[in-house]
């Protein structure tokens, strides 16, 4: 496969997943903001979400305070935010268009229709009561794309690179959202209502509130919440699930492309092993923030290594 095609498919997967993740994170934060103490609590919530999405500095350049309306606009419709939903939809469609022939018709229509409909939204669509509906729509479009890819693509390199982008982005998102509330997981954190709300919000932002109950059948506690999101293979958005798939997908890619695994495959294996054999007690004792910062940084390195090995078009 052409390196450029693989690159476009990989980023198509990432941007489509990112649009849905921003919508999920936004939905959870919206709920927290409703419960939080007035003014500074609300502002802290929105800043935390933007830090998690990696778009807080850009926002700070444009706004002094993180008022809800401005924050929501920045994360949804503002094309200037490279991690916002608008930019994700645009970038996903741009990548899809350059590799039209590598996509199935269903995938193309999922992406293209999203792009066409998205252009009709104005600031009214993200105001007040209409915001939850808008967020549900974004989430459903990502689900539709993922479903179209899973159900209609041949299991060849086109599928593998699209899927690789999707799960790498998903791992990154879970790590960032959990990290944005790491304070509520510190060993000395009080088990009060505020912390409880944070644990709930983390679970909600990856759609795992119900899953928690199905797995543990007990009230929320920080160690179990962290374990679910980090180490439980049953949860498709847990880090261990994502990296198991990253590793498997990279193995299949190298087998189909000459067999040289490259540094990216070693890194993915190392990350996966750490999660597979890790214990939540040890992670929390050493500090959740340090652990997650390490994962996020290694995930960036992993993305760079994948690009170096497959996407940049090496000439040797």
């Amino acid at each position: 496969m052409l390196s450029r095609t693989a690159d476009s498919l990989f980023w198509l997967g990432r941007y489509s997943e990112r649009a849905g993740n921003v919508a999920r994170g936004l939905g959870a934060t919206l709920r927290m903001a409703l419960l939080a103490e007035p003014v500074d609590g609300v502002e802290r919530e929105w800043r935390a979400l933007m830090v998690a999405a990696g778009c807080e500095p850009g926002f700070r350049e444009r706004h002094d305070t993180a008022a809800q309306e401005a924050s929501v606009h920045w994360l949804t419709l503002d094309p200037a935010n490279p991690s916002g939903i608008a930019a994700c939809v645009e970038a996903a469609r741009r990548n899809a268009r350059t590799v039209r022939t590598a996509l199935t018709v269903d995938m193309w229509e999922a992406i293209n229709d999203t792009w066409i409909e998205f252009r009709r939204f104005d600031s009214g669509a993200i105001c007040g009561d209409r915001l939850p509906g808008f967020l549900d729509w974004v989430k459903s479009r990502t689900l539709l794309f993922n479903g179209a890819a899973a159900d209609t693509m041949l299991r060849d390199d086109a599928w593998r690179f699209t899927h690789l982008g999707t799960i790498l982005e998903r791992a990154d998102n879970t790590a960032r959202l959990l990290d944005s509330r790491h304070g509520a997981f510190a060993p000395d954190a009080a088990a009060d209502a505020a912390c409880y709300a944070h644990w709930q919000a983390v679970l909600r932002s990856v759609g795992a509130l119900r899953a928690y109950q199905h797995v543990y059948h007990t009230r929320l506690d920080p160690a179990r919440v962290a374990e679910l999101l980090l180490l439980r293979p049953e949860l498709p958005r847990s880090l261990v699930s994502c990296y198991a798939q990253v590793e498997r997908t990279l193995e299949a890619i190298s087998a189909a492309n000459g067999g040289n695994p490259g540094e990216c495959q070693r890194l993915a294996g190392e990350l996966h092993a750490r999660l597979r054999f890790g214990r939540v007690g040890g992670i929390l004792d050493h500090g959740l923030h340090d652990f997650l910062t390490g994962v996020i940084e290694e995930n960036i390195t992993l993305g760079q290594e994948i690009a170096r090995r497959y996407l940049n078009g090496q000439t040797a």
């Binding site: 496969m1 052409l2 390196s3 450029r4 095609t5 693989a6 022939t101 390199d157 690179f161 890619i253 189909a256 492309n257 000459g258 497959y310 996407l311 940049n312 078009g313 090496q314 000439t315 040797a316």
Partner: peptide
């Protein structure tokens, strides 16, 4: 046309020339 013929559709940046031979950049190398 590329799709109907089952060949790659490339842009200039997908190709390079070494020792007067043209290669395309693929996931499996040149």
């Amino acid at each position: 046309l590329a799709d109907e013929m089952g060949v790659e559709l490339v842009e200039g940046a997908d190709l390079f020339v070494r020792d007067k031979v043209v290669y395309m950049r693929t996931t499996a190398g040149p």
